[in-house]
Simulated assay, not measured.
Amino acid sequence: MTTTVTETTFQELVQPLRRELVAHCYRMMGSLQDAEDLVQETYLRAWRSFDRFEARSSVRTWMYRIATNACLTALEGRSRRPLPTGLGAPPGNPNAELRTRDDVPWLEPLPDRVVWGEAPPDPGDVATSRDSVRLAFVAALQHLTAQQRAVLVLRDVLCWQASEVAATLGTTVASVNSALQRARAHLASLDADAVPTLPDDDPRLRTLLAEYVKAFEEYDVDRIVSLLAADVTWQMPPFEEWYRGAEDVGALIRRHCPAEAAGDQRFLATSANGAPVLALYMRDKVDGVHRAFQLQHLEVTPDGVAAVTVWFDKELFTRFGLPLELPVVDG
Rank of each mutant, 00 (worst) to 15 (best):
Q148S: 05
Y43H: 12
G92P: 00
S163N: 12
A46Q: 05
T73C: 06
P94Q: 07
R113G: 00
T100W: 12
Q161V: 00
R78Y: 02
R52W: 08
G92Y: 01
A150L: 03
A140R: 02
P105M: 08
L87Q: 04
L158W: 13
A166C: 03
D51W: 00
F53P: 08
T68H: 04
D112T: 08
G88Y: 01
S129Q: 04
T172W: 02
Y64I: 12
N69L: 04
R48C: 14
E118T: 09
V165I: 14
A67V: 06
L87W: 03
A70Y: 09
T145K: 03
R113E: 05
W160H: 12
F53S: 09
V115S: 01
L44G: 14
F50W: 12
W116G: 03
L107T: 00
L135K: 09
A127W: 08
Y43M: 15
V104Q: 10
R134K: 10
G124Y: 04
E108V: 07
L158E: 14
P84H: 05
T172G: 06
A89N: 14
D102S: 15
Y43R: 10
V104G: 10
W106C: 15
S57Q: 12
W106H: 14
A166L: 06
L107E: 02
A146I: 06
S132K: 00
R56C: 12
S129M: 03
L158T: 05
A146L: 07
S79G: 08
V115F: 06
S132Q: 02
Q142C: 05
T61E: 12
S129G: 11
Y43N: 12
E108P: 09
Q142M: 08
L83H: 09
S163E: 13
A140S: 09
L75W: 03
G86W: 06
R78W: 05
T171Y: 01
L169H: 03
S163Q: 14
E54I: 10
W160C: 10
T172L: 00
L141N: 11
A136V: 13
G92A: 01
N69Y: 04
L144M: 08
W160K: 10
T145H: 03
Q148G: 01
R101I: 00
E76L: 03
E97H: 12
T61I: 11
W62E: 04
L154N: 10
G92M: 05
L83M: 13
R130F: 12
R130E: 15
V165T: 15
E76N: 02
Q161K: 14
G86L: 11
T85P: 13
D103Q: 08
R56H: 14
A119V: 09
R149Y: 07
T128C: 07
L144F: 06
A150F: 07
F137C: 05
R60L: 13
V165K: 08
P94M: 08
R155S: 15
F50C: 03
R65Q: 13
D103I: 06
R48V: 11
R134I: 02
L135R: 10
E118P: 02
R80A: 15
P120E: 08
S49G: 09
D131R: 12
R60F: 10
D112W: 04
P84S: 03
T128W: 01
A55I: 00
A74Q: 12
A89E: 15
A136R: 14
P105W: 07
S57V: 13
S79W: 06
T73A: 13
V114W: 11
A55F: 11
